[in-house]
Simulated assay, not measured.
Amino acid sequence: MESFNFKSSTRIILGKDSFKDVGKYIKPHSSKILLHYEGELIKKLGIYDSVVTSLEENEIEFVELSGVVPNPRLSLVKKGIDICIENDVDFILAIGGGSVIDSSKAISLGVPYNGDVWDFFTGKAEPTKSLKVGVVLTIPGAGSEMSESSIITREDDSTKAVCDTEFNIPEFAILDPQVCYSIPTKLMCCGIVDILSHLMERYFSPTENIELSDSLIEAAMRTIVKLGPKYLENPKDYNTCAEIMWTSTVAHNGMIACGRIADWSSHRIEHEISAIYDLNHGAGMAAIFPAWLKYVKEFNPKKIESFSKNVFNCENGIEALEKFFKSLGLATTLKELNIPEDCFEYMAKKALGSRETMGNYVKLNAKDIINILEIAMGGRKI
Rank of each mutant, 00 (worst) to 15 (best):
K160T: 13
S50N: 14
V89F: 01
E298W: 04
Y181V: 09
E145K: 05
I195V: 15
F204Q: 01
N239Y: 08
L65R: 13
I339Q: 03
L352G: 03
E57R: 11
F312N: 05
G39W: 03
V250Q: 04
I195T: 14
S150R: 04
W246T: 12
F344I: 07
L337R: 01
P72D: 06
S182G: 04
A173Q: 00
R73W: 05
I85G: 07
G96R: 06
G67W: 03
T240Q: 03
G96D: 08
E40S: 13
F325L: 11
K160F: 11
A220K: 01
S266R: 04
L196N: 08
I26S: 03
I60D: 07
A142P: 00
A161G: 06
M377Y: 14
F121Q: 05
A142H: 03
F4W: 02
M221Y: 04
K20R: 14
L131R: 06
A125M: 13
G80L: 08
Y181E: 11
L232P: 01
C258R: 13
S147E: 02
F4T: 05
G191Y: 03
I217R: 06
D263I: 01
K367A: 13
T247A: 15
S75D: 15
K32F: 03
M245A: 11
D263Q: 03
S274C: 13
E64K: 13
L35S: 05
V69H: 02
F312E: 04
N253T: 09
E356R: 12
F4L: 00
I33W: 00
Y203A: 04
L187G: 02
N58G: 07
C189L: 09
E40G: 08
L334K: 10
D342T: 12
L137T: 01
E59L: 12
D278K: 14
I339W: 01
A94C: 11
Y277T: 03
E336A: 12
V63Y: 05
E298L: 09
G379E: 11
F6Q: 14
L330E: 05
P206R: 13
S75P: 02
S66H: 09
D82N: 14
P340Y: 14
K326M: 13
I12G: 02
T240K: 01
N58R: 09
V117I: 14
E61I: 07
S104D: 01
G46H: 05
I152V: 10
R222I: 09
T138C: 10
T185Y: 01
T122K: 09
R202H: 06
A94W: 04
S8Q: 15
G123L: 15
T249I: 09
S266W: 01
I269T: 05
W246R: 11
D82W: 01
C190D: 12
K124Y: 08
P170L: 10
A257H: 07
K226E: 15
K297I: 08
K160D: 11
K236L: 00
I47W: 01
E59C: 08
S248T: 10
S75V: 12
G98D: 10
A366H: 05
A286D: 07
K323P: 03
D263W: 00
C180D: 10
L65Q: 15
S18D: 02
I107S: 01
T357I: 11
V100R: 02
K309G: 08
C258K: 07
K367E: 15
H271Q: 15
D368E: 08
N371L: 08
G254Q: 04
P70L: 06
